[in-house]
Design a binder for these strands. Sequence first.
DNA 1: GTGGTCTAGACCACG
DNA 2: GTGGTCTAGACCACA
Lengths: 129, 129, 129, 129
Amino acid sequence: MFELDPTDPTPLYAQIERAIRLAIATGRLKAWDQLPTVRQLAVDLRVNANTVAKVYGELERAGIVETRRGVGTFVRQVTGTSFSGPDRERRLAALVDRFLTETAELGVPLDEAIAFLQNRRKHGRTSAG
Amino acid sequence: MFELDPTDPTPLYAQIERAIRLAIATGRLKAWDQLPTVRQLAVDLRVNANTVAKVYGELERAGIVETRRGVGTFVRQVTGTSFSGPDRERRLAALVDRFLTETAELGVPLDEAIAFLQNRRKHGRTSAG
Amino acid sequence: MFELDPTDPTPLYAQIERAIRLAIATGRLKAWDQLPTVRQLAVDLRVNANTVAKVYGELERAGIVETRRGVGTFVRQVTGTSFSGPDRERRLAALVDRFLTETAELGVPLDEAIAFLQNRRKHGRTSAG
Amino acid sequence: MFELDPTDPTPLYAQIERAIRLAIATGRLKAWDQLPTVRQLAVDLRVNANTVAKVYGELERAGIVETRRGVGTFVRQVTGTSFSGPDRERRLAALVDRFLTETAELGVPLDEAIAFLQNRRKHGRTSAG
DNA sequence: GTGGTCTAGACCACG
DNA sequence: GTGGTCTAGACCACA
């Protein structure tokens, strides 16, 4: 499904939550799809089950998934943009900053990077993850 | 210079480090520019001086800045690792794909993302999240 | 495991780091051995836990150990940078010359120094100065 | 005369003191030779004059050099081994530990390193430093 | 119980 | 005044 980056200082639970939100936002997980069980995902990610359970709990409190006892955890009807106002702004800034830093470190001029972006977009090449 | 986002699960020191790397990578801090003093930046960001010191230490071990004892901390000459050929191409593609995926997640149209990129590059204000 | 020398101007964290690198380099700590816990080593050496944590952090960023969150810190597989040819020769010569010079400074005859080397290699007790 | 290693966590004053003791012990500086002036050495090492002055002061208190006002600083008659008992032991251990660590990291077996040592010694090749 | 982050505050090395 | 080292101690993430 996805992988964790142990070198990222971001806590595991935040990495997991982000990845699930991403999967939903990009449509890889659709409404009423079932999420992996806590234990299964814990095994896949080589993480303690408590960590996954914490994430599912937070997603449920956020109204993004729904847990039916004894059945499983499911994606709820997507209400709209999953990120709102200031949060959206903040995340966009973070994305853009990282992109600028990494292209600059690669020695790629911004113009070239943008051209690459547009080109890549046209050919429909995105790998979700 | 930049701001921290206390709601971001990313540790403060990592937010600070990212912001400084960004400033250097984008040329807002140039070779041999002096960084703010540890204590000054700590005051500006309202964090403990040790937190800033930790960042400066890591940047130094990473070879990105140079500290002269009793004088201050300075941006080092960028050696330009300069990846070339297929490696550079491959890395750029990875960066771009991730950027496309993540902006899509946020529901940000590519045009808006590019505008944001260019604007941010120009005006250099960052919220280091 | 080893001892610190408080009269040595070398910072404590550097003494600790050197001792651990020595233990790994000489095979006293082997790949995937667990290091002492941060708190335990701090108690043994009578230093603050933060000081040990700093060392472990640096060793991790240097790629020498690996920490698994909530589990512990482990020696990584030695990749063996394996310098070869003239480079290896050159580096070895530099090491040897420095060693000869410095033992001469101390007035230690080469025979004694070599005996010390072999003994220390065998019994592995170090005073990390 | 010698160089400082800015990446060594050892304080500058300790590096300088060690180098001067080394020069005396190895005979590069002989009894009644004049040391460079504080200011000259400070310029050569690109260090603040206070730092050098501190070292000269300590060497004088240790009875190793003698300052004649308005004339200069001179090496005193060497009384014997410059390092005594526990200090000698400690320093030898430090030397040996570093040597073991560095050869091991180079992937040089101890036997080979010792052979190299003996060979190098025979051919009289030492560079004081 | 494991490592990691952060703070407050002392003291040192250096200019 | 600059950065660096160390301590004590709180709190967090993870197993």
